[in-house]
Structure formats: structure tokens, C-alpha cells
Design a protein around this nucleic acid. Structure first.
Lengths: 137, 137
DNA sequence: ACCCTACATTGGACAGAATCTAAGGCAAGG
DNA sequence: CCTTGCCTTAGATTCTGTCCAATGTAGGGT
């Protein structure tokens, strides 16, 4: 996610102040923010930015593979700027904290053809649920 | 999920006509229904049942571990009555269909201690995304 | 440097999912 | 069969996310 803006411009992405701010918010902390959290942080720098724009921009970034959408608990989707290196998630069931992990092995190989029921599988998402050190007590 | 009602009564669950119908709907087909689909099917037998009651009952069942909540991308959550045998899910990205799969291998073993960051991991959720035979075209 | 035009943004309305509320209903134990 | 406290109801409300027509603007062409 380092030179996101440069990569996007090369691919003919129209660079606007709003998009720049959204990209910078995502690039800032490597936290997994919800769309409204992204909007709130973007609005600190660009107060007139609208929610629709943030949603549109996030959808664009997901579509271009620069950001991964993570839906944890059926509540708001969260956006993971660390899309370059494939990874999975460690989720705290109490406080909602998400951490990236890089497990060994390939989960796709754990799905034998006899179990794919004619699906054309393109991605696998693995979520480890438990308690983070602070919540385990 | 066979003697669900008996198990619940033993644990002091107040048995009402509405709850009985919801449990029976879930027990019927082993499909993964959304809350509103459960409500629609329950209403066929008990027309005056309210949406809130279905939601409440499903939440109760999830909380008691009798049903698993599957949250797909921002769509409605689906409820999986097959909570007794551990399994994973095949999800169609277009129509939302969910199928149970029983992959080989243990995903938990793919998470080395060096990657668990102090979390006490209790469960793993694996979702294979792709297109079902009807949507692949 | 300026103008065009296609594309982006806005903000409010809208839609779907789920939860909350207050009033009334009823299961289960005594 | 009475009481108590949990359950149910209908509708309002919250929360996410999308859509729309009107307006603004980035960046290429001249």
C-alpha cells in the first residue's frame, strides 16, 4: 500500500482531493476501519467530503484489489489496506480487535474436488476467533 | 439438532408456540436461511408471528450454541442449524447460496504459536468464495 | 494558458437488516 | 387456578449502504 496513489494514477484513476484523503486515511494506521470511521477521519481533513464518496471510493479500491473488505460480525464491513500480502485474520470475540496473521499451508488445498460441488472457488477467507491478550484475563 | 426442543426445555427455556415453530423451520430443511426467510416460513404455520420474535429467537439459539450465524458480505445473516458437526462454508458471491463442506486437514494447525500473538483461539471459520454452478455460466 | 467533457462529488432520499420500546399475553411453578 | 415474570407484538428507530439528479472539476486537447 506504499505508493498507492502512484499505482492508481498509472491505471488512469482520476485523482481528486477526496480520493487522496481516503487513501491517506487507509494508509495511515494499519487498523481495519469501518466505512463510517474512514469517513469520520477523512472529514477531519476535508470537512465537506460526503459519505457517498467514501463508500464509492472504498468500493473502487476493493474492486481494484488495493483494499480487502472484511465482514466480521454482520455489522459494518471493515477495510483492510494490507491487500498486497495474502493473509488471514485473528478476531477478538469480545472487543472486535482484528490482527493480520500469515499462517502456513494453503487452505485451498484443503478443499478436495469432491467437496467443491461444482463451485468455481476463487478465494478463501480464514478467521480465527478467540480472545486477545487483554480480553482473555 | 434432533431433539432441540427437549434440550432447550431442560435448560429452562420457556417453550412457546412461536419458538417451537422457529425451531421446527430450522430443523426442517438443512438450508441456510436468512432471518426473514425463517420468518416467512414460520408465518405459514403461525401467521401472526412477528419479525422481532423470530430475530429474538434466532439470537437466543445462536447464544446457546444450537445454531451458527453466518455473516456473508453485508447481506442478511444466515442461520445454520448444523451446529453440532464442525464444517466450513462454500459461498456463492453472486446469489448468496451457502453450502456446507467438510474439508480435509485442520486449519487450526496452520496457525503456528509464533503467529497467535497471545490470542487464545477457540474456533476457526473458513469460507470459500466463488460462483455456484448456476451463477458461474 | 484556457476550455471541454467525461467523470467525480454532493446531500438527501431511499432501502434492507436488525434492534428497541411499551403495552398486553401467557407458560410454568406454586 | 393464580401469580409472576418472561415473551410477543407492532411499529418506530437505528444502522449500513446505495441511488439519484444536479453540480463541480481533473486532465487532456488546442
Amino acid at each position: 500500500m506504499s505508493d498507492l496513489l502512484g499505482r492508481l494514477r498509472e491505471r488512469g484513476w482520476r485523482l481528486t482531493a477526496q480520493r487522496r484523503v481516503v487513501a491517506e486515511v487507509l494508509d495511515g494506521d494499519h487498523i481495519h476501519l469501518t466505512a463510517d470511521e474512514v469517513h469520520a477521519r477523512a472529514a477531519e481533513r476535508l470537512p465537506e467530503i460526503s459519505r457517498a464518496t467514501v463508500y464509492n471510493t472504498l468500493r473502487e479500491l476493493v474492486h481494484r484489489g488495493e483494499v480487502v473488505e472484511v465482514s466480521t460480525d454482520g455489522r459494518a464491513k471493515r477495510y483492510d489496506p494490507n491487500a498486497r500480502s495474502p493473509h488471514h485474520h485473528l478476531l477478538c470475540a469480545r472487543c472486535g480487535l482484528i490482527r493480520d496473521v500469515h499462517p502456513t499451508g494453503d487452505p485451498l488445498s484443503d478443499l478436495p474436488p469432491s467437496q467443491s460441488f461444482g463451485f468455481t472457488v476463487s478465494e478463501v477467507e480464514v478467521t480465527y476467533r478467540g480472545f486477545c491478550p487483554d480480553c482473555a484475563i
